[in-house]
C-alpha cells in the first residue's frame, strides 16, 4: 500500500487540506491502520499541548476588567432608563424611539470607549517605554563600568610591562659595563706584555751589534 508522506498529513491534521486532498486522505485512513495510528498519536500530542497554560499579565487583566465594568455599568444605566421610561411615560412607539436615540447612544458609547481605552493604552505604552528606558540606562551604565574596568586593567598591564623592560635594560647596562671593564684590563695587560717584549728585543739587538767584529 502506498502511504501518503508524513508532511501530507499535517494540513489534514489542522483542517487546512484542499477538499479533494482531504477526501483522498480520509479514504486512505479508513483502510490503513498504520496511518490511523500515526495520526492518532499526533492528535494526542497536539491535545496534550493545551495543558501548558500561561497566566495572563496583571495589567491586561486590570484593563479588561475595568473596561468590562464600565460596559456593564453603561448597560445597567441604559436598562434602568429604559425601564423607568416604560413605567412612567406614556405609551410610545418604541421602534421609532430606538431608531432616533440609537445613533446618538452609539456615538457616545464609541467616543467614551475610545477615550477610556486610549488613556489606558497610553498609560501602558508609557510604562513600557519608561521601563525599557530604565533598562537601557542600566545596561549602558554596566557597559561603561565594564569599559572602565577593562581600561584600568589594560593600564596596569602596560605599567607592569614597562617596569619589566626597565629592569631588563638596567641589567643589560650593568653586564655591558662589566664586560667593557674586563676588556680594558685585558687590553692593558696585553699592551704591557708587548712593551716588555719590544724592550727585550731592543736589548738583544744592542748586545748583538756590540759583539760584531770591526
Amino acid at each position: 500500500m502506498n502511504h501518503p508522506k508524513p508532511e501530507e498529513w499535517v494540513p489534514y491534521l489542522y483542517g487546512e487540506s484542499r477538499p479533494e486532498v482531504a477526501r483522498e486522505l480520509a479514504a486512505h485512513l479508513e483502510s490503513c491502520l498504520q496511518c490511523r495510528e500515526q495520526l492518532a498519536g499526533w492528535r494526542a500530542s497536539v491535545k496534550r499541548l493545551d495543558n501548558w497554560k500561561l497566566p495572563r499579565t496583571g495589567r491586561a487583566d486590570v484593563m479588561g476588567v475595568s473596561v468590562l465594568r464600565w460596559a456593564v455599568a453603561t448597560l445597567v444605566l441604559l436598562l434602568a432608563g429604559f425601564a423607568v421610561g416604560r413605567l412612567t411615560g406614556p405609551a410610545v412607539d418604541t421602534e421609532s424611539l430606538r431608531s432616533s436615540i440609537e445613533p446618538e447612544l452609539r456615538r457616545q458609547l464609541t467616543e467614551e470607549l475610545t477615550s477610556v481605552v486610549r488613556a489606558q493604552v497610553k498609560e501602558a505604552a508609557e510604562s513600557t517605554l519608561h521601563t525599557a528606558a530604565r533598562e537601557a540606562e542600566a545596561i549602558a551604565a554596566a557597559y561603561v563600568r565594564g569599559l572602565q574596568a577593562q581600561r584600568a586593567e589594560d593600564r596596569r598591564a602596560v605599567e607592569t610591562a614597562l617596569a619589566r623592560l626597565e629592569t631588563e635594560r638596567l641589567t643589560d647596562l650593568a653586564t655591558l659595563k662589566q664586560e667593557l671593564d674586563t676588556l680594558a684590563v685585558n687590553t692593558d695587560a696585553g699592551l704591557r706584555q708587548t712593551t716588555a717584549g719590544l724592550v727585550e728585543l731592543a736589548h738583544y739587538r744592542t748586545v748583538a751589534r756590540g759583539s760584531e767584529p770591526e
Binding site: 508524513p6 508532511e7 501530507e8 498529513w9 499535517v10 494540513p11 491534521l13 498519536g41 499526533w42 500530542s45 497536539v46
Partner: peptide, 8 residues
Amino acid sequence: NSRMADAL
C-alpha cells in the same frame, strides 16, 4: 509541513 511532521 515536514518540520511539523517531525516535530509532532
